[in-house]
Simulated assay, not measured.
Amino acid sequence: MGRNRDQRENFVRHHSDKELYNSEDARDDDTLYDHYSLIAAEGQKPLRVDKFLSNLLPFTTRSRIKNASSTGSISVNGQEVKVSYKVKAGDKVKLMLPFPPTPKLEAEAMDLDIRYEDDDFLIVHKPAAMVCHPSFGHRTGTLVHGLLHHFEHLPVAKGSEHARPGLVHRLDRDTTGILVIAKKEYAMAHLSKQFFDRTTDRLYQAIVWGNVEEDEGTIEGHIGRHPKDRKLYFNYQDGEIGKHAVTHYKVLERFGLATLVQCKLETGRTHQIRVHMKYLGHTLFSDREYGGNTIQRGPNTKKYQQFMANCFSICPRQALHAKYLALDHPITGERMEFHTDLPDDMQGLIEKLRGNPFT
């Protein structure tokens, strides 16, 4: 035990907490796992990688490490390895894990719109105004509380101090659409790795202010906290702040005052589509946090203002919907696709915009 403690202390002396825990990446990304990087100290005798990791990461278990190995989530010097691999001095070991559990979550009875379910995972359609997991100001009534009512033994993920049973990724409070929920720890590890490796396909639809001129394009930058409001995010171009983010967009329909676009995520940063479309000059319609809930285009007349007030009443939240998700089944490897229709508020807004007399 003394040598293990010395090895941990030697490691921490030469590596920052961010390199060891990388927890900031996990909090700012929509995927819910933690990523560890460790270097075997000088004098390290050959040791199974699962034992090596459990010695240096005493807050996790051998079984969770074994599950990570089964999904290809342990690598040594850039190569995936099994738990039987013997770590040697100087080896660079990387591990990706779903977050460990946090207690004090109580089940709450609520209806969930489950679109698919098998023994390993399920697909849920999240409505607007539902928060995915407990956070400051949202201690009850979240999707997680509802999941605990329907499923007793979900694998648990954690971000900062908040438990997130079953959640592999998340959606903003007022974003609707598809979410995948893991029912077993193996499925959690496998699905989390797919999001980390960007092998899933995610398509969103959004209604944005103004006429998007290009039929399609790519927005790229680094998304980080907004310099003036820490609750918001900002697209930085210099790369010194934030995390790399890429969104591909395609125009589906133009209304003159607004545009229906499809967005394909290459990365999954917090508020990514909302931030990228604002950066492009086309804030999401009715997005109160980024200014989309005030009139951005059109004539300064009472008739137009009344028309827009009706539009805001039809869709009073950001017009963003997670419409499509494709992933590999964690057991069979089969490619699976899930679709969902636009919700009524976005459908109603589209119909209203199609008939607008102010084009």
Rank of each mutant, 00 (worst) to 15 (best):
E117V: 06
E337T: 05
V208Q: 06
R173Q: 05
A187P: 09
A319E: 03
F11V: 09
L284D: 04
S160R: 09
G217F: 06
D6S: 09
I74K: 08
N356E: 09
L105I: 15
A41Q: 15
V275H: 03
L122P: 04
N10Y: 09
H153Q: 12
E106P: 00
L353E: 01
A206H: 03
A128G: 05
G217W: 03
I241K: 13
G166W: 06
D345C: 04
F11T: 00
R48P: 09
Y33F: 14
L327Y: 10
L252I: 15
V12A: 11
P330W: 08
T200L: 10
Y204W: 11
D229L: 07
T301V: 06
G159I: 13
R274I: 01
P101S: 10
G268Y: 02
P330L: 10
P165D: 06
N356G: 07
Q305H: 13
D238Q: 05
T359W: 11
H339F: 07
L320R: 07
D201Q: 14
T270F: 10
F136D: 07
L349N: 01
R3A: 10
L143H: 04
R64Q: 14
I295V: 14
G177C: 05
R64A: 15
I114L: 02
L265S: 08
I273R: 02
F11D: 01
K302G: 10
E106L: 12
E19A: 15
L342C: 07
K183H: 05
M1S: 11
Q318C: 02
D174K: 10
Y33I: 14
C263H: 01
D344K: 15
N310E: 15
T60A: 10
K158G: 13
I241W: 01
C263Y: 05
L171S: 03
P357D: 12
R64D: 13
T283G: 02
R269V: 11
P134N: 08
G355S: 08
G210L: 07
D341V: 11
Y324K: 09
D345M: 07
Y36C: 07
K228L: 13
